[in-house]
């Protein structure tokens, strides 16, 4: 019988290394020269990062299980961020949700204040997300970009229909952009190209291919991410951005993480099911190439951190 040869693929490309954070605490994501966690084949210089989602006002619509897990910390984004770091967050995703017109319709002044407070409370790098309405995103993210100058944060979401203002703010303040596209490989590449055409460096982009939760389109996200990662490793520089996944938000949006009444016994107990829903969504996307997973539940943060550590350790 012939000997077993280790089947190694040769990859021409490398995922861009994106630097985040200020002098006190830096974080690098990306840099892989092989598929996720295949240490026998190439380099994985930085473990995928675990981000915790913090909102700038208490999210009344979050599931009771989630709200209970953070308790009073949710009243103040800075205390919330601090607690998230204690649970092991590598970075903080700060959602400026209150700026949404259907919410409190807060403006740039409030955004600036929140960002400054969070930055002065934690050293962990920050990703700042607007409320998802183009006009408001531009207003609050430009203010946030200025408030965070010197701390190299990431700003999002840049979308095909609205990216210029945010990219200009990134370039003016040496920040990173989060580029979001709807589960499609060519749209993802195209937006990266448009952003680079404006002059932002490829190593200053995280791409969000749009997360589908377990049972709610996970397989689409999974395959688009696998294809993007393969393209990046094969040398396509416009597909070689580290990938960013809003796991917690999507997992906790679903009925499985929320419904407590009138559900089949086969679904099991709500807390067990809800936590596994978030964890398995994260796990699967890490295997597809996620470089940043944004999580919500503190126990999930700890478990996914521990799992990443195991995946990064050659046994």
């Amino acid at each position: 019988m012939p000997p077993v040869e280790t089947p190694v693929e040769k990859w021409a490309g490398k995922i861009h290394e994106v630097n985040l954070g200020g002098d006190a605490r830096r974080l690098v994501v990306g840099g892989e020269t092989t598929l996720p966690f295949l240490h026998f084949e190439g380099a994985i210089p930085h473990p995928p990062a675990v981000a915790v989602e913090v909102q700038d006002r208490p999210p009344a619509s979050w599931a009771p299980e989630l709200r209970a897990s953070w308790g009073e910390a949710m009243e103040d984004p800075a205390s919330w961020a601090k607690k998230a770091v204690e649970y092991g967050a590598d970075l903080i995703v700060l959602y400026l949700s209150s700026a949404h017109p259907d919410d409190q319709n807060t403006g740039p002044q409030e955004a600036k204040k929140t960002v400054t407070r969070v930055l002065s409370t934690v050293d962990a790098p920050l990703i700042i997300l607007g409320p998802g309405i183009a006009e408001k995103d531009n207003e609050v993210l430009v203010a946030a970009a200025e408030a965070a100058a010197g701390r190299r944060v990431a700003l999002g979401f840049c979308e095909q229909k609205n990216y210029r203002t945010i990219i200009a703010a990134c370039m003016a303040n040496n920040h990173v952009a989060v580029a979001k596209t709807p589960v499609e490989i060519n749209l993802a590449k195209q937006l990266n190209i448009l952003i680079c055409d404006m002059g932002l460096a490829p190593d200053s982009i995280l791409m969000d291919p749009t997360t589908g939760a377990l049972g709610y389109g996970l397989e689409y996200t999974y395959s688009v991410m696998e294809r993007l990662r393969l393209a990046g490793l094969q040398g396509d520089k416009m597909a070689a951005m580290p990938m960013f996944c809003t796991v917690g938000e999507e997992a906790w949006r679903q009925k499985e993480a929320r419904a407590t009444e009138g559900i089949p016994a086969a679904w099991g107990d709500i807390a067990t099911r809800a936590l596994r829903w978030e964890e398995l969504t994260a796990m699967t996307l890490l295997l597809a190439g996620a470089d940043v997973v944004v999580l919500r539940h503190p126990q999930v943060v700890q478990r996914i951190k521990a799992t990443i550590q195991k995946l990064m350790t050659k046994e």
Binding site: L214, G215, L218, Y222, E256, A266, W267, A271, T272, L280
Partner: peptide, 29 residues
């Protein structure tokens, strides 16, 4: 996701089985 054809579980509970079976359904669609 990555290449087992048979998995033997040591623990069974509905709250664990449901998400895992859903993942299998997603990956094999």
């Amino acid at each position: 996701a990555k290449y087992a054809n048979i998995i033997v579980l040591d623990h069974f509970s509905p709250g664990h089985a449901y998400p895992l079976l859903t993942l299998r359904q997603n990956i094999y669609t």
